[in-house]
Amino acid sequence: MNWKATYARLQIASTIAVAAVFGAGFWSFLIAGILNVTFEIGENESLLYFGAPLFLVFLVIFAKNLREPLRRAGLLSDPPESFESPRNRDNV
C-alpha cells in the first residue's frame, strides 16, 4: 500500500464520518424538538430519551449508507485501489 491509497482511505473515512455525524445530529435534534413541542415534555428529557438514541441509530445508518451518494455527488475521491501500482494489484 502506498501513501496515495492511504490518503484516499483516510479522506473517504473522514468525509463519511463528518457527514454522518452532521446528518445524525440534525435529524435527531429536529425529531427531539418536535416531540418536545408535541408532548410538552422538558427539553432535557426529550434530548436524553429521544435525541441520544436517535442520534446513535441515525449515525449507524448514515455511516453505512452514505458512501455511494457522496461518491455520486463528487465529494469522495477515487477508490483507494486506483492509486495502487499495477504490480501490487497482480500480486493480490
Rank of each mutant, 00 (worst) to 15 (best):
F55E: 03
Y49F: 09
R87S: 07
A5F: 03
A20V: 04
V18W: 03
E45W: 00
T38I: 04
A19K: 11
S28L: 01
A20S: 15
I61G: 03
N36V: 07
L59P: 09
S28Y: 10
A32W: 07
E81H: 12
A73K: 10
Y49W: 15
N88V: 10
V60E: 11
F55K: 04
V92K: 12
G25P: 00
N88I: 07
I41F: 04
N91Y: 03
I31R: 03
L54E: 05
L75Q: 02
E81I: 14
L59I: 04
I31W: 07
V21Q: 01
I12S: 15
V37Q: 11
I34C: 02
W27E: 05
I34S: 09
A13T: 14
F26Q: 01
V21A: 15
A5N: 12
F22R: 00
E68L: 14
L54H: 00
N88C: 01
P80R: 03
I16M: 06
P79N: 05
F26A: 12
S77R: 12
P79C: 04
M1W: 14
F29T: 13
R71W: 09
I12E: 15
R71N: 14
L35A: 05
V57H: 12
S85R: 12
G74S: 08
N91K: 04
E40M: 00
L54S: 11
L75T: 11
P80S: 04
G23I: 12
E40I: 00
R87A: 13
G25I: 11
R72G: 03
L66R: 02
L48Q: 05
L76F: 06
A8S: 15
L56D: 07
N65Y: 15
L30E: 09
L70D: 08
F26H: 13
V57G: 10
R87V: 10
G51N: 05
P80N: 10
L59V: 10
P69G: 03
R9K: 14
I16G: 00
S82A: 13
E84G: 08
L10M: 05
K4S: 10
F39Q: 10
Y49G: 10
E84Y: 07
P79Q: 07
F50H: 11
E81S: 05
R67L: 11
E43D: 12
E45G: 05
A63Q: 01
P80G: 08
Q11A: 15
A17L: 06
E43M: 01
N36P: 09
Q11S: 02
P86D: 07
F50C: 11
S85G: 01
F39P: 01
S28V: 02
F26V: 12
L56G: 15
I31M: 08
T38W: 05
V21W: 02
E68I: 13
W27Q: 05
G51T: 07
A24I: 09
S46V: 02
P86G: 12
P53K: 08
G42D: 01
L30F: 15
A73D: 02
W3A: 14
P53H: 08
L10V: 12
F58T: 04
F50D: 08
A20D: 06
A5M: 07
T15S: 11
M1A: 14
M1P: 13
A63H: 13
V57K: 04
L30M: 01
